[in-house]
Design a protein around this nucleic acid. Sequence first.
DNA 1: CTGAAAGCGCTAACAA
DNA 2: TTGTTAGCGCTTTCAG
Lengths: 347, 347
Amino acid sequence: MSVTLKDVAQIAGVSTASASRALRGFETVDPLIRERVMRAAQRLGYVGSHAAAALATGRAGSVAIITPFLDRLAFQRMLTGVHRVLQGARLDLLVHCTGDPSDPHPVPPHRRLARRVDGFIVLSLVADSPDIADLLHLDVPVAMFGAHAYGTSSVHIDDRGGAAGAVDHLIAGGHRRIGVIYGREVDNPAVLEHDRHCGIRDAFGRAGMPPAAELLVPGDFTMAGGARAMTRLLELDEPPTAVFAFSDEMAYGAIQALRANGLHPGADVALVGYDGHDLSAALELSTVSVPFEEIGATVARQLLDRIQEPGMPDVREILPTQFVSRFSSQALADRGAARLGGGAPSS
Amino acid sequence: MSVTLKDVAQIAGVSTASASRALRGFETVDPLIRERVMRAAQRLGYVGSHAAAALATGRAGSVAIITPFLDRLAFQRMLTGVHRVLQGARLDLLVHCTGDPSDPHPVPPHRRLARRVDGFIVLSLVADSPDIADLLHLDVPVAMFGAHAYGTSSVHIDDRGGAAGAVDHLIAGGHRRIGVIYGREVDNPAVLEHDRHCGIRDAFGRAGMPPAAELLVPGDFTMAGGARAMTRLLELDEPPTAVFAFSDEMAYGAIQALRANGLHPGADVALVGYDGHDLSAALELSTVSVPFEEIGATVARQLLDRIQEPGMPDVREILPTQFVSRFSSQALADRGAARLGGGAPSS
DNA sequence: CTGAAAGCGCTAACAA
DNA sequence: TTGTTAGCGCTTTCAG
């Protein structure tokens, strides 16, 4: 078997207790003993048993990040931020993706996880999803992004303002028929994108132009969904001259659909996305920039705080968004109308 | 504290040994006892202590994925595949990103991890990176992507063929001046992209046209790097009429640089990427499609095999790539030459 | 087929 | 300050 604390203690000629204290850098250890222990550990290539320490202390030394999707650009960026903070705190990161309950376990995964981590980072989920609700009753520290629940800390973004700004921009460009590709069908205030809906309503309201229902289509937050949504919009009798998508990825799909119909974003139809991914720059896509990496770092920090001080009051932090104007939103209302009015492409 | 095995056993009126056996589904347990134990566990909401089990069995119930980058699209896709397979095997996934050794630990992170996981999945690293080399001596099961080492299993892709195919395509399009945006500067056979270099050499060799050194520029596998590389290529006295980038992300950067110079991929300069990300479809970027999700799943499966049977012989699997032709590579050699020949943009 | 008992390797009281 | 002594909660011989 591998080297244990006992071995180190023996070589150093001290008790395991002292060895343990020395290794963990306790102040109350004689420098001489510390030196001997360190040297012995070094020589033997000692690496403590995580499991044993966890069992003895009740601390797991790790946190889990729970997300409904691994394949979103936003996840990746948040992961980067989370990882950075956790690394600094010497905590390991477990990644768990919900969904695919195809194989019903006797003990649900998050329950199991709850017993093996010190806390959870929950990303972009409907707050009242049964799994998450369950977590909250487990009295494990939790920090979330995009949702809030009593007893947790959370990070939010100014989605209402961000979405409103995007639509304002389009309206200022002279557009009157503005399509919106939103995410999921659910109409739930707890859902992440609820604020975005409010934001566009604000903007349309201020301009005195309530959006037609036919101009609101769901895109499922995926590229393919965005493409489908845009296709539907183009098939309308009177297609929009501008489109705002609730995510860059859906906007990418929209671009694809546009091109498939011989149209060009920015030239024929104005398009604005949401998220501010790097790739949007390459596509010259206007977007609402969201500081995902910072979101990840912030939510990780919130979790660390809660782990250290479980009873602390809930903290909510709101991070700003920023509109980034690029070529894709420069199409003019009349130009778009002219091009599209001639006849909807491929009915 | 939380519910323990002892509690369950007590309620069920059996010993902890029997309870343990029953919970783990051993065949040698009286159905009646099993029933009683299960019921008790259910009623108490029992969830086993991971740490205790790990300590007792020596098995961690988790594996770590080690990668030098979290923010690459390829990572995300591989992660998805890995997660899927691991989930099926009831193993938790730890994500660790190497690099940032700013804070030198007494015990390096991978050493620590090695004591708390059942195996490692190593992604896209130089095989002889000191960290990895260290891992290999730890006799922990390891499966890698893109590199190989004795005592590990690995999955590879047909990079040589993939890269050659991309260049062949460009040459077939009539291009004689073909720029190549490769990855890192290191000239190391163990490096992931080594085969890609061989592949382009194959293709150029077959066509009897050795590439000029000035046409080979590094792009660091990032979008920004790709943009810089393309800019450098455009500043040449005689810019290339076609460019092959070793990754889609660098190609995205190249597109950006092209546009910044008033040029259009597919119209003025032919461009081919590598990786086959979804987004390339939106950009109409020709690319070499790589099955990253399957790579992830395969390497995960390899690791599971090695964990089950540590002494097994090394396994190497090679997955195919596929060239995907899109608009970006349709620019003709003469058209590109004509446009660019008139004078290099912004000297 | 079941139960008693001895650890797994470490930490945390407690005493010295 | 240091060592002794109990566990942490589970698994696993080994008897029965």
